[in-house]
Nucleic acid binder design. Structure first.
Lengths: 138, 138
DNA sequence: TCCTACATTAGACGTTGTCTAAGTCAAGAT
DNA sequence: ATCTTGACTTAGACAACGTCTAATGTAGGA
C-alpha cells in the first residue's frame, strides 16, 4: 500500500489526502468495489471528498496499471487492486460475489489461428459463473 | 428467423408488428447491436416503435434464451442473436468490432478444483482482445 | 364482431459516469 | 518560513443507458 504511494510519487503524482484515502480503501485481497462504494468508504475517512475526485483517481490508477477495471454484470464497473498478478474472476450468479482465481494453462492457446481472423490477439479475460457455497445452501 | 417467430408463437407470444421488426433487425451472423442501434434500425422499418418496446422485447428474448447479452466494454450492452451455438468473442481494442469465435478444448477444465472455492461452476465467458486487420494497417 | 388480457407508447425517472469553471493546495523555489 | 504556480479538488450540470408508470391500443380467442 505505501509501496503504491511510493510508486505514484515516483511518477510525479501529488500526494493529496483524497488520493491517499482512495488508495487506502482499495487496499486488500478480493476487493472489488464499484466507484460509488469506493466513494462511500472514502467519505467515512474524509467526509468532504467529492465523487468526481474518486472517479478521476480511479481512472488514473487504471491508466497507470495499478488497479484493474472489471465489468461482470453490465452494471457499474468494479475496481480490483490485484492488478500486478494475472488472474481471472469467478462470479456468483445469485449474489454477485467475485473471487479472484488462477486458471492453469495458456488461455490464449485455446484460440486456433483460423479463428483469429487476422487479429493480433494480445489478451484474454475469463469470467467463470456459478453458485457460491453460501447461495447454494440457502 | 421465421423459425424464431414460430418458436415464440408456440410459447404464447403475441406476434405484434414491433416484435417482428426487432426479430428481423437481429437476423444474421456476427450481429452485435446495442439496444439503441436496434431501435434505430427498427424505426427505419416501423417509425413509431418506441424505445421501451425495444428494451422490453430484447429483455424477453434474452430470458427465452433466443439471444445473448454481451458486455465487452462496460458501456452499452450488445445483443447477439447467435445464442444457440456456444461461442466466445474476439474484440478489437481500437475500433470495438466484435467477432464470434470458437475456442478448442474444455474451457471449464482450466479451473482446478482448489481454485473453485466451493462454487458450482456452470459457465465460462471468454473475451479475447487484440487489434483487427483494419486497425493494425491503418 | 366483440372482449379482454397483453402489448405499446411517451415521457418521467434512476443509475452510472463525464465535464466545466472556480477555488484550493502540494511541493519546489527563494 | 513563505511564495508561487500548475496540478488537484469541488459542486453541480450534463450525458448515456436503462427502467418504470399510467394511459392507450390491439392480437387473437369466444
Amino acid at each position: 500500500m505505501s509501496d503504491l504511494l511510493e510508486r505514484l510519487r515516483g511518477r510525479g503524482w501529488r500526494l493529496t489526502a483524497q488520493r491517499r484515502v482512495v488508495a487506502e480503501v482499495l487496499d486488500g485481497d478480493h476487493v472489488h468495489y464499484t466507484a460509488d462504494e469506493v466513494h462511500a468508504k472514502a467519505a467515512e475517512l474524509l467526509p468532504e471528498i467529492s465523487r468526481a475526485t474518486v472517479y478521476n483517481t480511479l481512472g488514473e490508477l487504471v491508466s497507470l496499471g495499478e488497479i484493474m477495471e472489471v465489468s461482470t454484470d453490465g452494471r457499474a464497473k468494479r475496481y480490483d487492486p490485484n492488478a500486478h498478478h494475472a488472474h481471472q474472476h469467478l462470479v456468483c450468479s445469485r449474489c454477485g460475489t467475485i473471487r479472484d482465481v488462477h486458471p492453469v494453462g495458456d488461455l490464449l492457446a485455446g484460440l486456433p489461428a483460423e479463428e483469429r481472423f487476422g487479429f493480433q490477439v494480445a489478451a484474454v479475460e475469463v469470467t467463470y459463473r456459478g453458485v457460491c457455497p453460501g447461495c447454494s445452501t440457502a
